[in-house]
Computed example of a mutant assay.
Amino acid sequence: MGAYIEVSAEVRYWEDATVNGIEDSDGKLIPLRKGELWAPVIRLSDGVLMDWPDGFEADVHYKVCDQGEYWLLDEALRRVAKWASHYVPDEFLCHGDNGYGDYIIFRVGADGKIANWRTPGIDPAEWTPLTP
């Protein structure tokens, strides 16, 4: 059903992340920020953040609650389904801790891969298909 997940998360507290060991107090250090949103695209097969800059490491613990949107993308990076809940999809965006539907939690290595990545199963009941 999907090869990637696209994230568009309104982060409440940017300082809840470190980038290359430095607290990102105002969100200016974290790669893939677009305005007030954090917007990574993650390849589901291996947990790699697309377009992550080489050599950057990050420890992310972002509180999002119901301020995010999430899409499954096909191999051509076209949106094919939207997350049907207003909470964070934990099985996709929480690795190494429990986010309780409110947090994006994971570590990104210098290679752009999420530590402890587990390829999530995709339950079609949790996603609303998009019409082409």
Rank of each mutant, 00 (worst) to 15 (best):
P53Y: 00
G101T: 15
Y103I: 12
V88T: 02
D102Y: 12
E69Q: 14
N98L: 09
Q67L: 14
Y62Q: 12
G55C: 10
H95E: 02
Y62R: 05
V88E: 06
E69V: 10
A81Y: 00
Y62E: 06
V60H: 01
N98Y: 09
V64F: 01
I104P: 08
Y62A: 14
E69F: 14
A84L: 09
D111L: 15
V60W: 01
C65V: 14
P53D: 01
L72C: 10
G55I: 06
C65A: 15
A110K: 14
E75R: 05
D97Q: 05
A84Y: 01
H95A: 15
D102S: 14
P89I: 08
G99A: 08
D74F: 02
H95N: 03
L77C: 03
G109W: 04
I105L: 10
G55F: 00
Y62H: 06
V108C: 03
E75C: 13
V64S: 08
I105W: 03
V80I: 10
V108Y: 01
E57L: 04
W71R: 07
F106A: 06
I105S: 06
Y62T: 12
E75L: 15
K82T: 10
Y62P: 12
I105A: 05
A110G: 05
V80M: 07
S85F: 13
F92I: 14
Y87F: 09
V88K: 11
F56W: 13
D90Q: 06
L72R: 03
Y70D: 11
